[in-house]
Design a binder for these strands. Structure first.
Lengths: 146, 146
DNA sequence: TTATTACTGCAAATCATTTGCAATAAGGGC
DNA sequence: GCCCTTATTGCAAATGATTTGCAGTAATAA
């Protein structure tokens, strides 16, 4: 069974709620994807297994998972209107989006901390959170375009 | 006359179009604000001078200015749904948003370039663009809360 | 096995932004 | 200064992503 499903079940044990076929399907699917799907894309994929599943169920499940901390979401400039979801990583990280194949790479760099520190000092501010998104072409797409 | 109005008139000269009272008012207002207003906030402010001006005119003017490169826009996580506009700066820069007073500070740091370079090397990717937003408390709000 | 009520599917609502259209008004030519 | 053309406006209706109310379905505790 998928890791996410297990984690969700643990949370249900603690906070109440039910594990339904729809929730299980969404969790399992989410785990196999390495892109950051939008609700609609996820709906499209999940429908192959359960043609009856409704888009609003996707949204409600994602919001539940988000609240439980199992899923996090982001907006990329590329398609500013669609929210994109993925299993939440436990550590702070930032994103690279390949504008050609839409692949997302999660990364971290200690220099991010330095930028925050330098800003705090220069402006006497206090940083609570940082969002970084790099847009470009991934190695695969670079090779292809040659 | 405001700088933005003049720049806009220059562009009208080159690419055609008309300088209307509404456009002038929006441009002048935009210039006096140091926050990054949403279309609705801008509408609210501008209405004091011209109670008849319609929200769709605000949007259309902002889109025109955006296309001309006089205005740029951004989405902050704070209010993910509202697009925020401000006079475009000629140089690349990033944003700090005070989550208390909503003040926006534009900044740049050479370390951003380093992060991009390091990512490019580590993943053999090519970065085209970078978005950074720092969220926190500005110096004024820090002092107030003491 | 049943009873309770959380969850689902569906349709309608919401909210920011966009668009079609008829009316208005810039600004070039007289 | 006045007229004419047509860009721009105001308004109302459309759009598109996400949310919500509600009645029916199904998970789980007893």
């Amino acid at each position: 069974m998928s890791n996410l499903v297990e984690e969700a079940i643990d949370l249900l044990q603690v906070y109440g709620g039910r594990m339904t076929d729809q929730r299980r399907l969404i969790l399992e699917t989410l785990e196999t994807l390495d892109s950051h799907p939008s609700a609609e894309e996820l709906h499209f994929i999940v429908r192959e297994q359960d043609p009856k599943i409704h888009l609003s169920t996707i949204y409600r499940t994602l919001r539940w998972l988000e609240q439980e901390g199992l899923v996090s979401s982001r907006w990329f400039e590329e398609d500013r209107r669609q929210e994109r979801f993925d299993p939440a990583l436990p550590i702070e990280h930032h994103h690279f989006l390949c504008t050609q194949c839409k692949k997302v790479i999660e990364f971290d760099d200690p220099m991010v901390r330095s930028i925050m520190d330098r800003f705090e000092e220069a402006f006497e501010a206090q940083i609570k959170e940082t969002t970084i998104v790099l847009y470009g072409i991934c190695s695969k797409c670079k090779k292809k375009s040659k």
